[in-house]
């Protein structure tokens, strides 16, 4: 078994150690930047490095949680947990990495609006499922019995 294969088999530990590494980087950066202040940017808002590292740490921990949960069978809860964690991660990325927290709210409205319309799209499409026959190709024997009753 190659080393790559060995590492891959322990991918959950790999993610966890990446998360701890990121946590360490956060703490180190926090200590180094103590007392220093970012210059005021000419335009826009500047995100502090420590905050970005904190977000990465959170994202990696959440990834570890989803991967970990996928090994446990929770029935229909699995998808709810997976989507819930994905939504938390997406919120973190959009708020901090994509600067939405400091942007004009209109940008956030556009993003939330697009998700809203996506929800309408998916919702109405899903309302329609299960309303039809499973297979559209009808078995010829069924046709025969329906249209030429043998008796």
């Amino acid at each position: 078994m190659s080393i790559v294969e060995k590492l891959l088999n322990n991918v959950d530990w790999l993610i966890l150690s990446a998360a701890f590494l990121s946590l360490l980087a956060t703490l180190v950066a926090g200590k180094m930047n103590k007392g220093t202040k970012d210059p005021h940017p000419v335009v826009g808002h500047m995100t502090p490095t420590v905050l970005m590292l904190t977000i990465l740490t959170a994202l990696l921990f959440l990834t570890w949680v989803t991967v970990g949960v996928s090994y446990i069978d929770l029935g229909s809860l699995n998808i709810i947990v997976a989507m819930g964690v994905a939504t938390i991660k997406a919120t973190l990325v959009s708020l901090y990495f994509m600067h939405l927290r400091w942007d004009r709210p209109f940008n956030a409205i556009i993003l939330v609006g697009s998700f809203l319309f996506l929800g309408i799209f998916l919702g109405f499409a899903l309302l329609d499922t299960g309303e039809y026959k499973e297979y559209l190709i009808v078995d010829p024997t069924i046709l025969e019995t329906q249209f030429n009753p043998s008796d």
């Binding site: 088999n9 990446a18 490095t49």
Partner: peptide, 23 residues
């Protein structure tokens, strides 16, 4: 899913470096 999880880490890390590039 092992490769999928690795790819997730790679992409998350690249997001951090991108945000740092903007900074």
């Amino acid at each position: 899913k092992r490769w999928g999880a690795t790819n997730t880490m790679v992409l998350l890390f690249s997001s951090l470096t991108m945000a740092l590039a903007v900074r």
